[in-house]
Design a binder for these strands. Structure first.
Lengths: 292, 292
DNA sequence: AACTATTTTATACCTGTAGTCCAATAAATG
DNA sequence: CATTTATTGGACTACAGGTATAAAATAGTT
C-alpha cells in the first residue's frame, strides 16, 4: 500500500477512535496527516470509503490474530475458541469501532455502502462462529449450530454492552464469553430455528473446501492470477506461476516455496493486492504447520 | 401538549421513519409541518431533542401497549409475555427507529444526550424483562433473572437482525421470541453472572413497591406535587389534593376518583406533565381492574 | 541533466447543513 | 381595546463534504 495512503489511514484511524466517525471532519484528517485535500480525494472518494478501508484493515487483523491463536492447537480447544471470539472484541475495542459494527441496522440511507459492508462482515462472523461451535462442541451439534451462534453472539454482545453501560469495566470480555458458552452448552435437542442454508452465501470457502489448506492456497493464488497479470511485473508473474505449479505437483518443495512466497510478498508490496499477499503468506504458514 | 408541538413531532416522526434521522434536515421538517424555523426552535433546542421527544412518545406507547396486553390476564401467562416483548419490536418497527435503539454504543460524542437517553431506556428494558421472567418462570429463577434477561434479549435482537439481513422478512418476531425463550428455559442452576444489584438504579419503582398499584399511584401523584403547584392551576391543585387524600384513606371512593382523574387529565392537557397525567390514568385503570 | 508523467499542494468554490438572531406580523388573552 | 405571547420568514454565521484547478514538487526514463 502506498505510503501516503497509509499515512492518511493512520491519522484517520486515530481520529475516528478518539472523536468518533461523524464528528471527525475531513479537515481534521488533513491536518493530522499533514496532507492536502486533493491528496485525500486522490485515495478515497469519500470519508465513508476511508472508514471502510480502515475496517477492512481491522478485519484482516482479526483474521490474522485468530489464525495465530489456533496454530499448533486442536480445533476443538475451547479456550482457543474463547480467545478467538475475544479477538474481535479486543481489536474493535482497541479501535473503538465496535459501535459501527453493532449499529448497522441504521435506517439512514446516507451510508448505504457502509451498511452493506458491515452487514456482510457481521453475517460472516456468525457463520464463522457456527462452524467453530461444531468443531469445539462436536459435529452432532451442526444442525443447531446457527441457533447456537446467534444465541452465543447475541448474549455476548448484549452482556458486554450492559456491563459497559453499568460501568463494570473490570469484567473481562473472556468471562462474558465463557458465560454465554455455558448457556449454549446447556441447550440442545430442539428443532433448529435458523437453517444452515440461510447462510450459504456467507460461508467462507473454508467450509466447502473442507478445511484443506492446500486447496485454499491454490484457490487464493488462482483468484489472484488476473490481478498479477495486470500488474505486468515479470518477477511477480514468474513467482505466481511457480507457486501454482509447485502446489499442483505431488511433492511441492516447501522450503523453496517459503523463500519464493517471501519474495512474492515483497513484490506485491504497494500494490492493491498487498493484503491478499499477506493472506497467502498466512495460509502457507498454516500449511507448513500441517506438514510438520 | 401544545398543538403546534404535536404538529412538529408528527411531521418529524414520519420523516425520520421514511428517510432516517441524519438524512432528514430541519428544513424538511419545517416544510412538512408547515411551520417556520423560529417555531421549531421555540419548542426544541435541537434536532436531537426533537428525536428524543419522539422516542419518549414511543416509550409511553410501548408501556401503554404492554399494560393493555396484561389486563385481566395472570402475570405468569407466557403468551402475554411474548406479546409484551414483541410490542417494543412492533412499535419500533412501525416507527422504524429500532436502529437508534440498537446503536447506542456509538462513540460519537456529538449526540451524548441522546446516547444517555437511549442507554437508560435500554437498561430499564432489561430490568423489566428480568422481572417479568421471574413472574412467568417462577420466583426461583430470580437469582439468575438478569442472566436470563440478557440472554433472551440478546438472542432476540441478534436473531431478528440476522433474519432481516438475510431477507427472511416472513419470520414473525413472536417466533423469534419463543425461540429465545426455549433457550433460557433449558438453562439454569448456574452461578449468576450478572448480579441483581448492578441494576438497582434502573429498576422501576414497581419492583421495590412490590407491584402494589395503589402505592405506585400514590408515588406518582406525590412526585407530581411540585409540578402541579408550579402550574398555579387552582382546580388542578385541588384535584391533586383530593386524589392523594382518597388514596391515603382506607376506603377510597373509586367512582368519584374516576371522575376526578378524568378532569385531572383534562387539566394537565397542554402542560409539560401531560404524559405523567396519562400514566396516572393508566395506573388508576389498573387499580380498578384489581379492585373488581 | 533534461524531459515527461504523475503526485501533491493550496486555494477558491459549490451546495447543503444546524443553529442564531431579529424585526415584523398574527393570535390569544385579560 | 391593549398587552402579552406565539409565529413568521429571512438574513446570517460557521462549518460540513466534496469538486475543480493551476501551480509546484516529486519520481521515472532516456
Amino acid at each position: 500500500m502506498n505510503k501516503k495512503k497509509q499515512q492518511i489511514i493512520g491519522a484517520a484511524q486515530i481520529l475516528f477512535i478518539k472523536k468518533g466517525f461523524s464528528v471527525t471532519s475531513i479537515q481534521d484528517i488533513l491536518d493530522a496527516a499533514n496532507i492536502s485535500k486533493g491528496t485525500f480525494y486522490n485515495y478515497f472518494s469519500s470519508k465513508t470509503e476511508c472508514l471502510m478501508a480502515i475496517l477492512s484493515f481491522i478485519k484482516d487483523e482479526v483474521i490474522y490474530n485468530r489464525q495465530q491463536l489456533s496454530l499448533g492447537k486442536p480445533a476443538s480447544d475451547k479456550h482457543v475458541f474463547v480467545k478467538q471470539v475475544a479477538a474481535r472484541f479486543h481489536i474493535d475495542k482497541k479501535h473503538n469501532l465496535m459501535a459501527l459494527f453493532a449499529s448497522l441496522t441504521s435506517t439512514d440511507t446516507a451510508h448505504q455502502e457502509l451498511k452493506e459492508f458491515l452487514n456482510q462482515q457481521y453475517l460472516k462472523e456468525v457463520c464463522w462462529m457456527a462452524e467453530r461451535i461444531c468443531e469445539v462442541f462436536g459435529e452432532e451439534r451442526r444442525k443447531q449450530s446457527y441457533d447456537d451462534a446467534v444465541t452465543c453472539f447475541g448474549t455476548i454482545h448484549l452482556t458486554s454492552k450492559v456491563l459497559m453501560d453499568l460501568g463494570k469495566t473490570e469484567v473481562l470480555i473472556e468471562e462474558t464469553i465463557y458465560f454465554s458458552l455455558r448457556k449454549i452448552e446447556q441447550t440442545g435437542g430442539q428443532q433448529p430455528f435458523l437453517k444452515e442454508d440461510y447462510f450459504l452465501p456467507y460461508q467462507q470457502k473454508k467450509n466447502t473446501e473442507d478445511r484443506n489448506i492446500k486447496k485454499q492456497l491454490q484457490q487464493a493464488l488462482t483468484d489472484l492470477d488476473a490481478n498479477v497479470k495486470k500488474l505486468q511485473n515479470k518477477k511477480l508473474t514468474y513467482y505466481q506461476q511457480f507457486l501454482l505449479e509447485q502446489l499442483n505437483s505431488d511433492n511441492p518443495d516447501l522450503f523453496l516455496m517459503e523463500s519464493v512466497i517471501s519474495s512474492y510478498q515483497n513484490a506485491v508490496q504497494d500494490t492493491d493486492i498487498e493484503d491478499k499477499g499477506r493472506y497467502i503468506q498466512i495460509l502457507f504458514m498454516q500449511l507448513l504447520e500441517e506438514e510438520k
